[in-house]
Design a protein around this nucleic acid. Sequence first.
DNA 1: ACCTGAACACCGTTCAAGT
DNA 2: ACCTGAACACCGTTCAAGT
Lengths: 224, 224
Amino acid sequence: MPRRRASHSMESVITEAVAILDEAGSAALTFRALAGRLGGGVASIYWYVDNKEELLDRATDHVIGDVLGDIARREATEDPIEDLRTSAVMLFDAVTARPWLASYLLRNTDLQPNALRLYEHLGQQVMRLDLPPRETFHALSAVIGYVIGTAADLGQQPPAEVLEGQTTREEYLGRYAERWRESDPQDYPFLHYVVEEFDGHQDADQFSAGLDLVLAGLRLQADR
Amino acid sequence: MPRRRASHSMESVITEAVAILDEAGSAALTFRALAGRLGGGVASIYWYVDNKEELLDRATDHVIGDVLGDIARREATEDPIEDLRTSAVMLFDAVTARPWLASYLLRNTDLQPNALRLYEHLGQQVMRLDLPPRETFHALSAVIGYVIGTAADLGQQPPAEVLEGQTTREEYLGRYAERWRESDPQDYPFLHYVVEEFDGHQDADQFSAGLDLVLAGLRLQADR
DNA sequence: ACCTGAACACCGTTCAAGT
DNA sequence: ACCTGAACACCGTTCAAGT
């Protein structure tokens, strides 16, 4: 008995694409897998999106819509940098939870209106520092670059073994730390100096500390 | 007449892989293209590397070897932060010139000994600030995260049309700027405030300004 | 307007066989 | 020890045909 003619919608296509990405990561999102989930044929998807790039841009914007909602709902405090910090951490957490996001976020704002709104929202917080346009633009670029860049970096870190649950993140870090300890202290004084910090560190702490440096620099500039 | 039996070497495999990456980008590096360049069969490459991941890790480390040489050759000044800045800019320039680098750099230091040496070298400059291990580790993480993250971000920016020479970067930025100007100033005050800075901006300036923020924050921490 | 199966031109990777 | 062609199991994308 042949399958009945399926019926989709842009909404369902994007929702199911996000579901695949969340459950199994970037590599698992194929047109065939998506079609299977939607209960239809592969070619149907091409009626909604022109190609895979557009599919990923739309999937990205879809989840950024939620993130933007969470970020925008927060009340502003009297300290713009504190608000910027809160937003940056929320964005970082969202990207960390969905490592596939980092590679596509803000790539094409035509297909990502929510990402553009997020950009605007963060920019408005920087504007409150009353810096000239150039410094304002650069400050937001720095914060966004740091957040997305670091999240992308950390997001791709865990190799297959960790993802498959054969090893924990701690063991994985520990193995690397062990190699650092075995290196020649003459040649690698830095590795030896920081190895105990590296071993067992939390990505979120590392991110947070770096963000504080950027924001401290920004505060200095704003107070001048 | 059948082709003569080809003879490769790890060196030639990696060199030609880098050549393909430099000339035509990430997508152009296929085992078939590489085999064609080496004048042999596809399967031969698998005698040298286990899979494509290893090929890319080795290609990355190969070019990082040169970058490390350039960076390490510079004389140290009396200001560690100035030296860190110089190194960071050199690394950024190298990654910008080879956008494919960003995604693989420091991904697997077992296969990237030069990348580990580069990490150590930058770390040693941070060490001169005499911060405790934790702050030292976080400071280097922040700088590396910012440099690689921003370079990766900027490196993927130009869409196909620009790469194919159908449009210049300026026109591309200009088209986006035009859309910013057409947006509602009530809803997008930030876009309007910075649009003239965005239009025609140089990536290197944007990077440099953000790096200054990170380093200003670091200097503040070191002087405490 | 929307969906379909089948085909096309690619991939990375494996393998049994050669030199 | 090193190289080979052919095959395998996948991809994204297209297309002519259906409803």
